[in-house]
Write a protein that binds this DNA or RNA. Sequence first.
RNA 1: GGGCAAGUGGCGGAACGGUAUACGCGUUGGUCUCAAAAACCAAUGGGAGUUGAUCCUGUGAGGGUUCGAAUCCCUCCUUGCCCACCA
Length: 809
Amino acid sequence: MAQLKQYNHEKIENNWKDKWFKDNIYEAVDFSEKPKKYILAELPYPSGKSLHIGHMMRYTVPEIYSRFLRMKGYNVLFPMGWDSFGLPAETYAQKAGITPQEAIAQAAVDYKKAMQDMGYAIDWSREINTCDPDYYKWTQWTFKKLWEKGLAVQKEMPVWWCKELGVLADEEVLPAPDGDGRISERGGYKVERKQFKQWVLDIPAYADRLIADLDKVDYQDSVKAAQKAWIGRKEGINITYQVLESNATITCFTTTPVNWGATFIVVAPEHPVLTALVDKGNTEVWNFIDRMKAQSDLERESKEKEGVFTGRYVKNHVTNKDIPIWVANFALMDVGTGAVQGCPGHDRRDFEFAKKYGIPIARVVVGEDGYDGPIENVNQVVQAGDKGKMVNSDFLDGMEFAEAMQKTMDYFEEKGWGKRVVTYKMRPQVFSRQRYWGEPIPLIYKQDGTIEAVADEALPVELPPMKNFASLSENKEWVQTIDSAGNPARRETDTMPTWAGSNWYYLRYVDPNNAEMLADLNKTKYWFPVDMYFGTAAHTTAHLLYSRFWFKFLYDIGAVPLDEPYMYRMSGGMLLGPDGHAMSKTRGNVINPQEVLESYGADAARISLAFLGPYEGTYPWNPQGLVACHRLVKTIYEAGGKVASVKAEQKTLVKLHKLIKKTTRMMEELKLNTAISEIMIFTNHIKKLEKISDEIWKDFVKVIAPFMPFVAEELWQEANSFGEWKKENSVHLQTWPKFDESLAKEEEINLPIQINGKMRAIILVPADLSEDEAKELAMKDTTIASHIKEKEIKKVVYVPNKILNFVLS
RNA sequence: GGGCAAGUGGCGGAACGGUAUACGCGUUGGUCUCAAAAACCAAUGGGAGUUGAUCCUGUGAGGGUUCGAAUCCCUCCUUGCCCACCA
């Protein structure tokens, strides 16, 4: 009589959690003989009480994958840490009425516990925390190097500002409910645009390398395309115009050969040339400029095109006509040169503007439709970059658009009117926040106004504890310091943005306690590059790009031995609420992971998350799926009661080896959902058996180990009758089972028979038939025979074990 | 407007150019039960039929390549994501 087993997930999970943790069974060993795999998942920023179920979805798949690799014989690094600086933590602390330090200390404990409850195979000896002074010492150190190399510079930038809260980040600002301007998310105060000095990182200096080195890595094409699009490299020409009756010049950037169609110039309201062009007394123009300056880029966009004529002209080099200079809202100071030559005949935006203000419209490009008559409506505008031929453009006439651009640039350079340039859409990235909760920027202002870096020995510049933690500038005592000469000086009170610490956290994992440098070069050499980087789709552009920049910089200063951190990137979607909408408290569709774990256990939670679909997808949470997964775990556990030392039954053996073969391939391809299907199929088979051979059982338990680590450990210990816990006896340190190709193969197969490519019958035949044997057996099938009758067989296509196709006349 | 994905049952999704819809959910019927739940068994793309061996049709639409297409190619449509008055 089979032993009756009762599945009690709570008991099983509590039994193993602590044992695994105490013995750190998932330790990643530096310089091990085994080949290494570095599996990285984006670290969470703790901004709530504990792990969200969305986090669990993001971590469970990489974690199962890392377990598989460990069992496959790799020395696996699967680390975890906390991205703890920045607004989310600060906001959470404020709501909870505690300091960010307290909030993070508690969150780290809670998040870690939640991950242990899920059974995550993390080497906790490598845990890092970006707000730990021993960590941010090196974030500051790297910033100092960036500053020394001239890659961190100060720049006047428009920022959001309000009297009550000071400078605010974009995400802290909301549109005002009455539609008039913006308000702060917290407090609802009126927010305005102001120019402030900000630290920026000159990431565009690395733009070409960031594009070129994509060839060194193996990201998906879509990820590479996104990286390139974000950088936005463009080749074009800067054309300089002399303003008539003035010393001033205006330089316009263009990528299109449409100078014969340029009928006006438009400059951004912030353009410095305006002071030279427009008289102080010209209130119409200045009022317009002031009104535009008060708006943000965000507000200016999506508004109707609006502009004012400055009263000045330039001469178009090629048409020799005087063309007017306008100021308009759609010209942006930080795109190109802040001035555009308006070519309304081919550019929809210029067209709308010209139409509105009665500026002449000239056609210089003919589209594929060949239409070259007068321009009456928007549909006749040939867009830049479109395939088209030049007309009304002197020596360019008849040329293709792209060729004409090259010729135009040659011509303008020859004449000295312009110069070829490369521009990037990517701009220097703002790197300072006027907030408390971030890494202090390790610079000081001397009495004479010059800037000096804090000495290496004085790093880290620690964040002083503050009760009211709005901004460091409020801490007068901390701000006062002395410079290297011993004179009074003032500390920089800006802190770094959230993404400072997350630019290099993956490096620290290889050597988390190093007090001498970011990470030992040999350890970095051993573990890097990251073999697989899992994260959310939202981080595939900016985070990936900025951290690649940061890493390249570290390479340039000799702090790391290679210049690309990640070999492969896997971007995942979101977990939605059961109703198919993003989880939110207001919708009331938030899933509480604690309840899931209590009711169904970690093993069921893990597989239900991995079973939803491929990692890349976005899925609604499926409560029924969870129940089904719980049933699967329970069935497997109870089947353990039927294990006996009996001879392996052939049929089951074949199914086992097919299971191993398929799951191995699926795990390698990261198709965890189908791997779980295979486990279900095998489980459906063994639950019908009277007795299960222990040899088969042990291999099966190893297969399920990465997916359901708790129940697998329990069953493994039982099956081997291990008494007292020993680390080396853990199922998770065993080797992934090998499959026997001859066993994984069916002896009899269903061979589909087609007539003219149409499926007509399936016959059960021995595997690996010759074509003649297959033909003979197929002919015996009545359906096939009736189809063929006396018709002539023109051709036979036979793919062994796959298909037999008769082509009839 | 640009870039990148993706369109398969009632739903999540399977399918190295070779049996379309594996696995799971849901639904329906059955077993068990006083009854319900749970569990188990069976059926489940649509249609026709002499309803247990058959046929037609079917992977967003339309073409093409092929003995054979969800899969490869072309055109179009739709959806999602990212970027965007980008000069």
